[in-house]
Design a protein around this nucleic acid. Structure first.
Lengths: 345, 345
DNA sequence: TTGTAAGCGTTATCAC
DNA sequence: GTGATAACGCTTACAA
């Protein structure tokens, strides 16, 4: 049924040359007589020859594979990073293998081990936690790698992330400028340093102005949990005049909790979302949002990784991108400066 | 710098056995004396040995790789399929390599060729077009494959998709039941058979009731284009009482166009969206939506592909899943049965 | 400039 | 039940 794929020998035979010559022609590794080269190319074309990359890898030890490990393939932030990476790799003859750690340490470990068994040229990882226990595997494999999004304690890592403190700060500053004093921060998981930093940035804005600290609710990682936690919080606390969401899923959680309670945005509560997706704009009240420069981050990840793959030995870089505040209609002046509001449902 | 990874020989030496025995222990391919096996396992563990999968692939010819080609890694429908697939493969020792064709024929061709060079055990493809010219490559590679989401003219293909006619029909039926007679269908690209079928299903509902056919606007594949086209249509036509969107991006386009014009949902226009995402629910007016069973589809794709990989030679199956209409607040009785409405902005 | 042959790490086929 | 050994398809010294 499945017959043998054509090998380099088939091409060599058809072109009347040696396998080595075929390799040299197709890879351009050494100059070959023009006429011969032409014959070889024709033969390869005619047979539909594609070099077996596994064999090439075995021989050279240099895989044109980039492995990517993310915590969740259903989170659009992570997939947008993957997408940006993919377009970078694509033109340079690299393949992308991808796995999800589902935010579980042991899955992270096993998926990483499995991918490393392909001896990839490079690795991009968004760790599930700051501890990132699986990094021992990377050290052992001695593969060039870049850590994205999450902060890591690994001193040898190249990291690409956003300036999380600043990201939190620009959101909070905007709310304070609008006149808000009673602000709730919706944070996903405070165990993650990037979330803590976003919080810290936001809190520091209030501190520097001598204002009281904000309330913070930890919503958990996924949408439904976030929605429930926020609902519970809203039901048992005085209603804030504004909410600052620190991830895309918490943004959804806030929206859901507010919608269920028919709390109007921004009349009753102003809202700043995190990340910037089409659905945030396609609303009667488009969301003010803290936008991460995903495309640029993807490109930077690939640039850094590629440099490492090609032998760059400079000290680990920690590249931070600035987020952009997209001001839209979901943030307004609070209706009652003292914090009570009108939208109770 | 990059020192040699440990090979099977290192393990063999440390355990005092032959490489063949190590292989037999680790793969369970043949019974091995328990004590020896234990020594081997300890040695492998101590050295952190991971078999080089490229070498294994070269020898066996059986890659544990599944290649996935999608039109767009930024479309959550496609990434959700990838995600569902990934969890299926993962536990069975397969690797996932993924590429985006960006909906371009030549990119599709080149990405497919590159992935096939890894001699993957199986292939999942969401073609960019019904013609799917790149399928010649698949035939030549004789690799088991499954076509997902899109309908294909390829008679040999196993396909997994939704029942598109029914999907269109349940949406339209719901609108008609609500009393709508002046309905706009927002279709992405009529060149695609699945979109045409969704249209056909919707149209047939009206036909069977002796009602006049709906207006159809072709919005194009991405969000901004869809938004512009719909805006243009709305500005130059009588306003319908309901809109049926046939893809996730057209849903966004409709929402955006309506929001810009401050047309209220469902007071002025009822709306049915396609696919079902958290953001559709996290709204003051949650969207009635035609939900594709993504998880089940991913599982079915993997089940079918796995069967083929394992030698199943039954005739090509064309599995269709039924979509589910999630009725929410965005669809209501039209305010003016004759089609005029109140929400002009 | 081209051909020949070794060898990458593994698994499968043979002997033992 | 275990150990040599060949072979997978390719690239690359080295020989011609």
């Amino acid at each position: 049924m499945t017959e043998k794929p054509i090998s380099i020998r088939d091409v060599a035979e058809r072109a009347g040359v040696s396998p080595g010559t075929v390799s040299n022609v197709l890879n351009g590794s050494r100059p070959v007589n023009a006429a011969l080269a032409q014959r070889v190319r024709e033969a390869a074309e005619a047979l539909g020859y594609q070099a077996d990359r596994a064999a090439a890898l075995l021989r050279t030890g240099k895989a044109r594979i980039i492995a990517v490990l993310v915590p969740d393939l259903d989170n659009p932030f992570f997939t947008s990073i993957v997408s940006a990476l993919e377009s970078g790799l694509r033109d340079q003859g690299y393949e992308l293998i991808v796995a999800s750690s589902r935010g579980e340490d042991d899955t992270e470990h096993s998926r990483l081990a499995a991918m490393l068994a392909w001896r990839p040229a490079g690795l991009v990882v968004i760790p599930g936690s700051d501890e990132f226990p699986a990094r021992a595997l990377i050290d052992r494999a001695r593969v060039p790698y870049v850590v994205a999004d999450r902060i890591t304690l690994d001193p040898a890592a190249n990291t690409i992330s956003v300036d999380n403190e600043s990201a939190g700060a620009i959101g909070m500053r905007h709310l304070v400028d609008k006149g808000h004093r009673d602000i709730l921060i919706a944070a996903s998981v405070l165990k993650l340093a990037n979330i803590r930093e976003r919080c810290a940035g936001a809190v520091s804005v209030l501190e520097s102005l001598g204002l009281p600290p904000p309330a913070i609710v930890e919503t958990g990682g996924d949408f439904t949990l976030a929605s429930d936690r926020l609902a519970a919080w809203l039901d048992s606390n005085r209603q804030p005049t504004a909410i600052l969401a620190l991830t895309n899923f918490t943004t959804l959680g806030v929206l859901s909790a507010l919608a269920e309670r028919a709390i109007a945005i921004p009349r009753a509560i102003s809202l700043i979302g995190f990340d910037d997706y089409a659905w945030m704009r396609a609303r009667t009240t488009p969301l003010t949002a803290i936008q991460q420069p995903v495309q640029a981050m993807g490109e930077a990840i690939w640039a850094r990784l590629k440099a490492r793959i090609e032998g760059d030995a400079s000290p680990p870089a920690h590249i931070q991108f600035q987020c952009d505040l997209k001001v839209r209609a979901s943030t307004a002046t609070p209706s009652h400066p003292d914090g009570t509001s009108t939208g109770a449902g």
